[in-house]
Design a protein around this nucleic acid. Structure first.
Lengths: 146, 146
DNA sequence: TATTGTTATACTCTATAACTATA
DNA sequence: TATAGTTATAGAGTATAACAATA
């Protein structure tokens, strides 16, 4: 059994993980900066930096969203000058989306500003707890990927 | 330094935790059941079960949303017969929201159905990784609370 | 006058369905 | 005919501002 034996009335690991993620996500999205770049756009920008140039379809797959959702995210990133699109060399249907130099600078600067709240909370933890989260993040990422 | 020393180019713990939570949240919300009860409503219902009857303001504070957001969640739960409201005994402005018996039954049954996806992924982990998540969930919850 | 809650409104995030352009 | 992407539309989730009722 995935969640193991547990006392009556206690929630499963799945329940607690789900609620924890839903609530932390809520807090994270509530942290705003002056910037008009949203958390979803930041996430896509991170993927572009990490993976290099991608087609819209590839980026949607990486971010695990449907193509129409990514269309809007890419348009917003372009509007802000953080990503650019170029024609695909061999397939006229596709495009190549690349993070711009401005996007790279922005990602570095904005991530710091954006994470002030989270950094403060992380700073309140013990070294052991941060180490625990370091390892948990890898497990969570693996689960979210597929 | 909260995130400790790290190699050039590697993302901070805050960055990685933020992205992991955003993406897992996306996957979790994508898991739908036939039910018309949303994940946000499930979360509020869980709080009602855990804390007992609460005023709308108290429930909003527990869930860390603004009062107008909770107004809509409570109305939906009422419509579904999962929660009920009673007049506050001493303050006519307030109300007391209580989870119904149907809400309790629903929460138990629906949580299981809803978490099939997450349970499958948890089942793919090692015992050590699940143990790690158990402890990480507590840390994340504490951070999300305040 | 202060507090609690609701109504009105708007924006973000995301999806599905229908469409266009290219392969 | 199949694939990649966009446009159109809708629903969930959340917020701020303005209002109503009660303390």
């Amino acid at each position: 059994m995935a969640e193991g034996v547990r006392p009556e009335g206690e929630q499963s690991l799945a329940s607690r993980l789900r609620l924890a993620v839903v609530r932390l996500n809520r807090r994270l999205r509530a942290q705003r900066t002056d910037s008009s770049v949203t958390l979803t756009q930041m996430s896509a920008l991170s993927s572009l930096k990490k993976s290099g140039p991608l087609t819209p379809g590839e980026l949607a797959a990486k971010e695990r969203v449907q193509p129409p959702s990514m269309t809007r995210v890419i348009a917003a990133l372009e509007d802000h000058g953080l990503a650019s699109r170029a024609p695909h060399p061999s397939d006229g249907r596709q495009a190549i989306v690349t993070i711009t130099d401005e996007g790279l600078r922005y990602l570095a600067a904005e991530a710091a500003a954006r994470e002030r709240w989270l950094d403060r909370r992380l700073a309140e933890l013990t070294d052991g707890e941060r180490e625990l989260l370091e390892r948990a993040v890898e497990v969570i990422d693996r689960m979210a990927e597929d």
